[in-house]
């Protein structure tokens, strides 16, 4: 029973990690409708920034988000403006995928060039402190991730529902052409969305970096899982993505413990395929999201 609880809690904590990493992708994938293969590299970039700010300037990792998130916002806006937007009118929408693959390759190698292949170690600054609750143990940092990811989802949800800009973003997501006719500057909305998505990753980086060793390839460990989470949650649904992340975290944890670590990827991807095929609109699709299957 104790073990079961620990597996459960580990799964939830892993889910929170996936959630915080995937929230930004949900926005980008759900609204701009671009498969951003460089998403993981944004995280990697953010983690290196956190590493630099903590080790060189001695700032607490959580505080670095104040600098790192805006920096990534700029990176996101630039990516949308200079790479994605010019391709929006291309005949083949596949082409954007390859642009992001190129970006991802460039960023991984840039990190290799600047930081080398060795791991960069962000000081834990107390975030690795284990906390014992009854029979289970979690890290302080993991609880922070869980709390922040919940707040982030609630905050973004409110932003999308309550503010003028948020409503414009939703309008663009629902029907780009109609939104354009209503006088919404679609390109601006896309840039903003991409920026916010990237900023979320920056925020995530400030919490992930103290817990996980940073290396040029760290992004690739996350990116497929993040896509799985976003698709499971239903395109563009923030709460859906959060729930999807929790489910993947739990599946991963339980499959790892009860089946074996060598095949847990098969279980996760198998579940993903099953849900994609049986319920392609995602487990928690809201009415906002567009269907992504042929009628």
């Amino acid at each position: 029973m104790e073990t079961f609880l620990q597996v459960l809690v580990s799964g939830l904590m892993l889910g929170a990690l996936f959630a915080i990493v995937s929230v930004g992708l949900t926005l980008i994938f759900g609204i701009v409708k671009v498969v951003n293969f460089a998403h993981g590299e944004f995280l990697m970039l953010g983690m290196y920034l956190v590493y630099l700010f903590t080790t060189k300037l001695g700032i607490h990792p959580l505080l670095t988000s104040v600098i790192v998130a805006p920096l990534l916002f700029v990176a996101g806006v630039a990516t949308q403006r200079f790479i994605i937007q010019p391709l929006m009118s291309a005949r083949d929408d596949h082409i954007q995928i390859f642009a992001t693959v190129g970006l991802s390759t460039a960023l991984i190698n840039l990190a290799l060039l600047l930081f080398g292949a060795d791991i960069a170690n962000t000081p834990a600054s107390g975030l690795r402190t284990p906390i014992t609750i009854g029979p289970v143990r979690v890290l302080l940092g993991q609880l922070v991730i869980l709390a922040v990811s919940i707040m982030l989802v609630i905050g973004l949800q409110a932003f999308l529902k309550r503010t003028q800009t948020g409503r414009a973003i939703r309008a663009v997501a629902q029907n780009r052409a109609a939104a354009q006719l209503m006088g919404i500057n679609v390109n601006r909305i896309y840039m903003l969305t991409f920026g916010i998505g990237a900023a979320c990753v920056g925020l995530a980086a400030s919490m992930v970096a103290p817990l996980y060793p940073t290396s040029p390839n760290i992004g690739t460990y996350f990116v497929l899982t993040a896509f799985v989470v976003v698709v499971l949650g239903g395109l563009g649904s923030l709460t859906g993505a959060f729930a999807g992340a929790m489910i993947i975290g739990l599946i991963d944890s339980f499959a790892g413990f009860y089946i074996g670590s060598d095949v847990r990827e098969v279980v996760v991807f198998g579940m993903f395929l099953l849900i994609l095929i049986l319920k392609p609109s995602g487990l928690f699709s809201n009415r906002l999201s567009l269907s992504h299957v042929s009628p």
Partner: peptide, 28 residues
Amino acid sequence: YPCFRLRGPFFSLATIAFLEVFRVLALH
């Protein structure tokens, strides 16, 4: 056959997932 219902990027993601599954099965 089941994947053709999926459009655009979703089809691509599904094929990636299948590829991962095959790789792990080949390891196993």
